[in-house]
Design a protein around this nucleic acid. Structure first.
Lengths: 187, 187
DNA sequence: AAGCCCATGTAACGGGTTACATGATTAC
DNA sequence: GTAATCATGTAACCCGTTACATGGGCTT
């Protein structure tokens, strides 16, 4: 149950319409919590009928007409409650690691190319994060808000750095692997 | 669609019953792909009716009777195909980062305790991984299988190390935060 | 008027989670 | 012989994903 709270956070930062939210979930917020527009509209409906947000009274809501939402006091309270409530970290769930484990059994044929591809993707993402850091978190501006947001961005940067290092290490190890154990055609 | 392939990998490593699989998904495989027994039974049924695995012919399958499965050639082929097929990395989805972003808006009240708790949890997980590394991957044994599995374990170790460092950094930053942005008492 | 993007949806499906059910085996 | 545990399932629900629908405004 995190999507509604992600939306509440986004709306508190800036009241928005569904499509504007979708755009923001493709950028900043989406860096650690992604969502499609279908999810967002479904959730906006629920949040509204639960009395946590309301549509800004601008024009009557016609289909195809922009409709902006803002957070109500009950919504802010719920977000504060959720934020401070303890939550266990989710166990890791990573397809690439699973594929490697499978490759240890059925052979590493073909997976190496994808490791290279992932390495490039993570390098690209890291560059994007570093660009944002340079732009948004220069030496000035030390409000609590900025420092916390910088902390979150730092997690992204360090995570990408971890993957780059690990993938580099993995590819090195692949290079001097004692030859494929392919001839395992026993069945 | 990763659970069936996780099960195929597990069954290739060692034919097992549903409950044995469940136990293994609580340990080694579960370190990067978790699954409950309900999921596993459901998926075993599908894999069998798809002709990728079969029940070992021991006793007739009575309810409450152990039933072991092994992988058929078609299953091994499907796993090899899946392993070498390119797959994009999933975008990060982390509740703690989302909560921090929310805390930047509604205040950091209460979240600090949970950061401490997470730090301890990650330290415990790291210790467990290091124990496994010492036990299973000593200086000897350099088969390709072992080296690949060690690589996967290394990812786990490095990920936990990342979280420990980041949480430590975050808690440090919290300590000299310019005080809550609600009513600042010190100035 | 045709085509394209903007904006808001609906519908169907599949995986993951939680709660519950039921038969067999073991412990006392 | 009864309680606990082992072992295999069923059922319901929610979230995330994919495909599709509808209407308005803009450009050509």
């Amino acid at each position: 149950m995190s999507l509604p709270h992600a939306i509440l956070t986004a709306l508190l930062e800036k009241p928005s319409s569904g499509l504007e939210l979708t755009r923001r979930f493709d950028r900043s917020i989406g860096y650690f919590w992604s969502a499609t527009h279908q999810q967002i509209y479904r959730e906006l409906g629920r949040l509204e009928s639960d009395g946590l947000i309301r549509a800004l009274p601008t024009a009557q809501p016609v289909r195809g007409q922009k409709k902006s939402y803002e957070v109500l006091p009950a919504g802010r309270a719920e977000l504060a409650r959720w934020t401070s409530a303890p939550q266990d970290p989710k166990p890791v769930r990573d397809v690439l690691l699973l594929r490697l484990r499978a490759a240890a059994v059925v052979g590493t044929e073909g997976i190496e190319a994808d490791l290279h591809r992932h390495l490039a993707l993570h390098q690209g993402q890291l560059a994007e994060y570093l660009e944002i850091e340079k732009r948004d978190f220069g030496p000035g501006s030390n409000s609590a808000q900025d420092r916390i947001r910088h902390l979150v961005l730092r997690a992204g940067i360090d995570l990408e750095t971890f993957w780059i290092q690990w993938l580099t290490h993995a590819l090195d190890a692949f290079d001097d692997l004692p030859a494929p154990e392919e001839p395992d055609v026993r069945r």
